[in-house]
């Protein structure tokens, strides 16, 4: 689907009316499901994700001998609903793109969680994508962070993620290209973008995924904008967690 993004240079406004450094509306709820150990619901624009955490629980080992190592196993299961996209599309269990996202998320949280506190156990994250409009991996990472906080799994800091792109495509080789923050679905189809996740307030990058081609000169700008966006995301997630904390405190005083 060819898309005309050349109008950006006229008013410096993107297709949905945002400026280059503006996030979409980020809305999150924590502890949405009573039956799960931890759960969260996150909206980044029109991307909607539900995450539930089970565990830390005893490993269900299928083969008797392999009883897990001295660290907890982080398992991620992503299911993309058939109705989530524009056209109805059913994805198989072993879709390559989905399994790569699962590995990325699992690796990221295996580093940031104190998995050594739970030997021989597993923490399973299950993600349901109800609606997708860009920044899928970033939304999943943010939802997982919130659900893990709800489940009370000790972690070093939040993993906050967002995407960053560049205003012109690789082939147009435009020198004037500006970096963009938090791309939506239409922009993602057209423009080069990366997903970056940082650990808390620091500039430490824990996740960086890029699947499109871009001139190496633009990469630094994109990364800087992305890391900056992650800090904004952290603020929002932190407020959600604090609001929940205040609610729990009020409940306990009664």
């Amino acid at each position: 689907m060819p898309l005309d993004t050349s109008t950006y240079s006229l008013a410096l406004l993107r297709l949905d009316g945002r400026r280059w450094n503006e996030l979409r509306r980020l809305n999150a709820q924590i502890s949405t499901q009573a039956a799960a150990d931890g759960s969260s619901y996150l909206e980044m624009g029109n991307t909607k994700v539900i995450c539930t955490v089970t565990g830390p629980a005893e490993l269900k080992s299928t083969g008797g001998a392999r009883a897990g190592g001295d660290k907890a196993d982080v398992r991620v299961e992503i299911s993309i609903a058939g109705f989530s996209g524009v056209d109805r599309k059913k994805r198989g269990r072993n879709d390559k793109r989905v399994s790569e996202m699962q590995t990325t998320i699992s690796n990221a949280f295996a580093q940031s969680l104190f998995t050594n506190l739970y030997p021989h156990s597993s923490i399973s994250l299950s993600l349901h994508i109800l609606s997708q409009d860009g920044s899928l991996l970033a939304a999943c990472l943010n939802a997982c962070t919130l659900a893990l906080i709800d489940a009370g799994v000790p972690m070093r800091d939040y993993i906050c993620a967002c995407t960053a792109g560049s205003t012109s495509s690789y082939s147009s080789n435009d020198e004037q290209a500006d970096p963009l923050l938090d791309l939506n679905g239409i922009e993602e189809q057209e423009l080069p973008f990366l997903t970056v996740g940082t650990l808390g307030n620091s500039d430490k990058v824990s996740v960086l995924v890029m699947e499109t081609r871009v001139q190496v000169g633009r990469l630094e700008g994109m990364l800087a904008v992305g890391v900056d966006g992650c800090k904004q995301v952290r603020e929002i997630l932190d407020q959600v967690v604090r609001k929940r904390g205040v609610k729990i405190l009020e409940g306990s005083q009664l």
Partner: peptide, 26 residues
């Protein structure tokens, strides 16, 4: 609740079980 579908609904039982249904048409 899902603007991308033709119709959708979500029900939560008190025991914590939850289901979402989305309808797409072609």
């Amino acid at each position: 609740l899902l603007p991308g579908t033709y119709g959708s609904a979500r029900i939560c039982f008190a025991d914590g079980t939850e289901a979402v249904v989305g309808v797409k048409a072609e």
